[in-house]
Design a protein around this nucleic acid. Sequence first.
DNA 1: TTCCTTGCAAAACTTTTGCATTAAA
DNA 2: TTTAATGCAAAAGTTTTGCAAGGAA
Lengths: 145, 145
Amino acid sequence: MGLDIVDTESSSAKVISRLSACGIRITEQRLRIATILLSAPQHRSAEQIADALRSDGARVSKATVYNTLNLFAAHGLIRQLSVDGDCAWFDSNIGPHYHFRDEQTGALQDVELQDVQFSRLPEPPAGMEVTGIDLVIRLRRRNDI
Amino acid sequence: MGLDIVDTESSSAKVISRLSACGIRITEQRLRIATILLSAPQHRSAEQIADALRSDGARVSKATVYNTLNLFAAHGLIRQLSVDGDCAWFDSNIGPHYHFRDEQTGALQDVELQDVQFSRLPEPPAGMEVTGIDLVIRLRRRNDI
DNA sequence: TTCCTTGCAAAACTTTTGCATTAAA
DNA sequence: TTTAATGCAAAAGTTTTGCAAGGAA
């Protein structure tokens, strides 16, 4: 705290190096989108990203938002989630983890890997291997209190 | 085996009674869609249902297919899955269970409840209760054999 | 210069809706 | 006869694409 400028500079440098490490060319739009998403673990829809860009005073076309998010996802910088049919969610936490999902609001919350343990998992079908496990714990507000 | 007519009659009667039990009015279109889905546990997209209806020689509008699937889902006769962003999948297995998903083809396969056991699950956030758990085990073809 | 990225608009795609017609009770 | 379901087309929403213009290497 206190050294906002230095913090900002160093996090900007971090974002640039993460993009560069993937061979992604640095542009203003990509830097803005990456800064929004990679500043902290979060779940955002394309529309929310576009809104955030507008709030920041940036003017980035919808097509570029989508293309950029897909580019980031293709390089493993973010992960696209399919938790509802309405729109895609982009998760900046790329480590293995799971999710809570509020069924009323659609809000997502991370569940740490170590908070879920399996004592049994099925054998994958012959000739197949497991590439990952998606787990969503659906929630609703309790009305019994 | 051997008594196809009786089998067909009895399964048709079963479908009708399941719809009636939900207070769903019987129509030809609903009966056709229900017969396709409820004949066996399966996962189908709206488009696949529409294709199947066309193959059967039935002419059912796209709107009716969607409305009917939503109606069935609202009454708990089928369950809508969100496993990819491309389209909705409708699962006629409404008992609790999980899924394998082939990442290349998108194909789904049921995983029985007892084939997955949790030795640890996180506490839901305060004031919330768990309504269900969606688990998708992602698969790809092994190329190491 | 050369290649890549952006923005805009239009297209593509899935899903929903409005309304006149038709079928079920 | 009264109410609800269907079909069609159009609308709505999200995501992708084509292409001219602009920016990075």
